[in-house]
Design a protein around this nucleic acid. Structure first.
Lengths: 237, 237
DNA sequence: CGGTTGCTTGAGATCCATCAATAGGAGTGG
DNA sequence: CCACTCCTATTGATGGATCTCAAGCAACCG
């Protein structure tokens, strides 16, 4: 099943017909190489990227060369709110791994939302989840320590990947370099490295060969004050 | 004119009729005392708060007593996305000053959006602006120094307050304590104090008696790498 | 007026950044 | 297949930005 639909089924009860309509939106796909830009700041945007495979990120490059990643985009993620297109792109969209994505037409997705209340509800649920993650990131960057931020991020990714079936045995693929992690969490690579070691030493995780294993999910959640509620503004039926 | 309409007119061309429909949404008002909670985490929400007068904020209280403010809400601001209500409130909503607000019904606002394309466009534009601010806050907390964060916030507030007519002579009312500022920017009050002094010493701002004056807007913007584009995803017609 | 709240300042501690160097692995070309 | 390069991970040492603790002061308020 398409990861987009797989995810949206957590937000509302979609009929077979709804699911087909959603599939139609992501009919054709494109590919982006790892580390390429899918949308660059300053572009005029004419479609909504929808990630099908691989990891992408929204990021800003600052004047002094620093980078801040403002969102990690996983399979099934719609990269922008569905209701409107910005006049131009302010944050760039980059592929972290090789990415397969669809270019969803704004008109088509809005038509789909109008045609079915369940689809509309699912899309709003998805949007609410995105804003909840943005807000939670602010909380992390503002008030949590480096190790807590890392643990919290791993918990969030665990929930999100689980929704699209990409977790097995408490483990998932984490194709991020330590530099990427640093730019997500507002830290330096050196400090990411040391914080990772701390989580390893505590026996909470393993991270080798781009695969993350969470040994004690509940302990990791407690340690990083993670509460999954923010990701599920509406419970699955 | 109602600040909500005043703001939305920046996002789309509203007819007289549209404006009346929007006014109808905010027909009745309530009051909240300074420092009271308008919505508390854990509540079930049944309406969307819309700020009419005064300043409010969305915030999270952490386990160890720390507070992170995730958004400042000004007159004309709708406190949540208009399309859906969360199952329950995850972030609390607090009044920073005495606040006058309306309780907008979800059904009514969605009906208004369906009845007029211009209203729908305006509401989406508003939502896009909110998410842009969330993302920009992440950039600030992740990659900007304390003084830059402060300057950037003052620039952002300048633009937002100007949209609703609350700026005169490069000055506006800033009813925040240094503790509030610290909780917005992820810093300590002591450091806020020192960073404010730095901005004052540079001659960029004055802040006395809850009034902020920006002496050199362009210099302040350049200093804090502020680019107003993120707040206006769609140019005013 | 005493109490509270917010602002200011100093001193010391801590977290995290920066700089620098090493090492391993993956890809590339000869 | 080897030499080379680049990228990533790792580690140590040092410095800096910011926090915490503590105290004093001003303004407001019942």
């Amino acid at each position: 099943m398409h990861p987009f639909i797989r995810k949206l089924r957590h937000g509302s009860c979609l009929t077979q017909h709804d699911q087909e309509a959603l599939s139609g939106l992501a009919h054709t796909t494109r590919r982006a190489r790892a580390r390429s830009e899918i949308l660059s700041a300053g572009d005029a945007s004419s479609f909504l990227p929808l990630i099908v495979e691989g990891w992408a990120c929204r990021f800003r490059l600052l004047e002094d060369g620093k980078r801040q990643i403002t969102a990690l985009l996983l399979p099934g993620d719609l990269c922008e709110p569905y209701g409107v297109l910005s006049r131009f792109i302010y944050s760039s969209l980059g592929a972290l791994t090789p990415v397969v994505f669809s270019r969803v037409s704004l008109e088509a997705i809005r038509a789909a939302a109008k045609s079915s209340a369940a689809i509309e509800e699912a899309l709003w649920w998805d949007l609410l989840g995105s804003t909840a993650m943005d807000r939670e990131r602010v909380v992390s960057l503002g008030r949590r320590s480096a190790v807590e931020r890392l643990g919290h991020l791993f918990c969030e990714l665990h929930v999100r990947l689980q929704m699209v079936g990409l977790v097995s045995n408490h483990a998932y693929e984490l194709p991020l370099t330590q530099t990427d992690l640093a730019d997500v969490l507002g830290l330096s690579t050196v400090h990411i490295n040391r914080s990772l070691q701390e989580l390893r030493t505590m026996g909470l995780i393993s991270l080798r060969a781009r695969a993350l294993t969470i040994h004690h999910l509940e302990r990791l959640q407690a340690f990083s004050y993670f509460d999954a509620d923010y990701l599920q503004p509406r419970a699955r039926a």
